[in-house]
Simulated scan of single mutants.
Amino acid sequence: MEVEGARNSIATLEDLVNEGTQVTICLRYSAEHWELLLPRVDSGGIVRFPEKDRYKSATTDTSTTSKYYSLSGRQMKIAVKGLMLTVTLGTTYPDGSVEVVSGAEGFLLKTLSSTLNFTFQAFLPKDQLWGNLLPDGSVTGIIGMVARREAHVAISALAMSESREKVTDFAWIFQNYPSLLISRSPKEKNKALSALSPFQLKVWLFLIVSVLSMGPFVYTISYLVNRYLTYDAQNDIQWYAFNMFRIIVNQGIFIRERSWPIRAILSFYLIFCIVFSVDFKRLEKYVIGILAFLTD
Results as ranks from 00 to 15, higher is better:
residue 145 M to Y: 05
residue 191 K to P: 03
residue 101 V to E: 14
residue 78 I to H: 03
residue 179 S to Q: 10
residue 259 S to I: 06
residue 3 V to Y: 05
residue 192 A to I: 05
residue 96 G to W: 15
residue 80 V to M: 03
residue 216 P to F: 01
residue 28 R to G: 03
residue 175 Q to K: 11
residue 93 Y to M: 03
residue 49 F to R: 09
residue 293 F to R: 14
residue 242 F to A: 04
residue 293 F to G: 06
residue 136 D to S: 14
residue 174 F to H: 12
residue 17 V to R: 02
residue 92 T to Q: 08
residue 150 E to Y: 02
residue 166 K to H: 08
residue 5 G to N: 13
residue 289 G to H: 07
residue 73 G to A: 07
residue 216 P to L: 00
residue 183 S to F: 06
residue 133 L to A: 05
residue 123 F to M: 07
residue 289 G to Y: 09
residue 224 L to N: 05
residue 80 V to A: 02
residue 51 E to Q: 14
residue 208 I to G: 01
residue 151 A to E: 04
residue 272 F to Y: 15
residue 96 G to T: 01
residue 242 F to I: 07
residue 193 L to W: 11
residue 240 Y to G: 08
residue 271 I to Q: 14
residue 187 K to M: 13
residue 218 V to D: 00
residue 176 N to Y: 14
residue 264 A to Q: 10
residue 26 C to M: 15
residue 286 Y to E: 02
residue 31 A to P: 02
residue 203 V to C: 01
residue 220 T to W: 08
residue 116 L to Q: 03
residue 287 V to R: 01
residue 98 V to K: 00
residue 78 I to R: 10
residue 286 Y to S: 07
residue 145 M to Q: 13
residue 182 I to F: 02
residue 116 L to I: 02
residue 103 G to N: 03
residue 229 L to W: 11
residue 96 G to F: 11
residue 164 R to S: 05
residue 13 L to F: 14
residue 56 K to H: 13
residue 4 E to K: 14
residue 231 Y to F: 14
residue 35 E to F: 08
residue 258 R to I: 12
residue 49 F to S: 07
residue 73 G to L: 02
residue 241 A to W: 00
residue 46 I to S: 08
residue 144 G to T: 10
residue 188 E to Q: 14
residue 96 G to C: 06
residue 247 I to K: 13
residue 70 S to C: 09
residue 282 R to Q: 12
residue 254 F to R: 11
residue 132 N to H: 06
residue 131 G to S: 03
residue 89 L to S: 10
residue 128 Q to E: 09
residue 36 L to V: 06
residue 62 T to D: 01
